[in-house]
Design a protein around this nucleic acid. Structure first.
Lengths: 213, 213
DNA sequence: ACCTGAACACCGTTCAAGT
DNA sequence: ACCTGAACACCGTTCAAGT
């Protein structure tokens, strides 16, 4: 938990995060972390009761490096900026996404993102109920996009997708085969992220206008 | 591939799907599938070259049971219905979601969902580029929601979340602590799904109105 | 007090041996 | 031709033994 000799929990978590980000969540094994630190595998169990506890520390470590969003501008500008900052953070630490899809994350530091988004939506004029619901939509989009888009390392994911779509029988898949290039392009990237974000923000804005009436 | 004696690829895939849906993706092991079928583990390798190939067959098997969406109504009614049908299908086969978040799915049968959504958006009046972009937003929401909501079996996920939020220091988390109950409620469920879907459909509708002008 | 090898119960998969 | 046990290289983790 606290003062041991050669290592610290933080050091171990940082090493584990680096491995997970680089090799993927499946590459994050206790043996790999130990080897990277030059200690025996079992040494790690002096700092964490289990791998699951280490994963919690990995999340904390990832969140620690998160850039905060600015606090200037309209609710829409701020929420848009928070989305981009959130996505950048997740791209720098893809391990976070993989862990989140395995179980909910309730660590205090990781909840700062939710706290910020919720604050913006409340200030925009939504009641607590709708603000949390809109936050959840926002969160689902940012994390869902990160989890469902090809990773940056998989540069040929689009080519694979385009090829698979091109092989479909056009009579059963007229729309997909006709728009194969567009469909492959829309698998990820800045422009696609922005397009979906714009539609969501438009939808929330329409809701705010509705409520004001 | 084809005619063997006691088993068939379909049978194995069906057994694997059942295990994955019931025990989660981590419970889907070659040994577990073989045991369920009453054969030796290595027998499965006569039908599938690897576990990954079996997972593809599991996806096909899951999609086979999908209910199709109706083809009546406005683009908005049809897209809304497709979202609900998609979500119901994913809830019946949570294994699909887990597999999809590990790798893109390009199996023909699984692409019927995309083909249908794309067709609706094109008929609504979006050009191919925006139709694929809007489809991607739609897809991200439906799959993201399924992947990020607590599974139906985890009935106490909300209580856990509410408890964790209640423990946050209110001075640093004023919004979350004040709306703890709402935030926990918004983690999943029909109403939350509908709320986010409504905002997205509103956003697409606003875009269509914009383009018409 | 801190570290760690041996051992165990699991994984997916190769390979050779069964029928 | 089809099936499968033994074996291998991995997992996380317990436990007892090292310093």
């Amino acid at each position: 938990m606290s003062s041991r000799r050669t290592l610290s929990s933080r050091q171990i978590a940082a090493a584990a995060l680096e491995i997970a980000d680089r090799e993927g969540i499946d590459g994050l094994t206790m043996a790999a972390v130990a080897e990277r630190l030059g200690v025996g595998t079992m040494t790690l169990y002096g700092y964490f009761r289990s791998k699951d506890e280490l994963l919690d520390a990995v999340l904390d470590e990832a969140v620690r490096g998160f850039r905060p969003a600015s606090r200037e501008g309209t609710w829409r500008e701020r929420l848009e900026q928070l989305a981009h900052v959130g996505r950048e953070n997740l791209e720098r630490h893809p391990a976070m996404v993989a862990i989140r899809f395995r179980r909910p994350v309730l660590r205090p530091e990781a909840l700062r993102f939710g706290e910020a988004a919720l604050g913006i939506l409340l200030e925009a004029g939504l009641d607590p109920r709708e603000a949390t619901q809109s936050f959840r939509l926002f969160f689902t989009y940012v994390f869902g996009f990160a989890g469902l888009s090809p990773r940056r390392t998989e540069g040929d994911a689009r080519r694979h997708a385009a090829a698979a779509i091109a092989l479909l029988p056009p009579e059963r898949y007229p729309n997909l085969t006709a728009a194969a290039a567009e469909a492959a392009a829309a698998m990820g990237g800045d422009e696609q992220f922005q397009y979906g974000l714009d539609r969501i923000l438009d939808g929330i804005e329409a809701r705010l206008a509705d409520r004001r009436r």
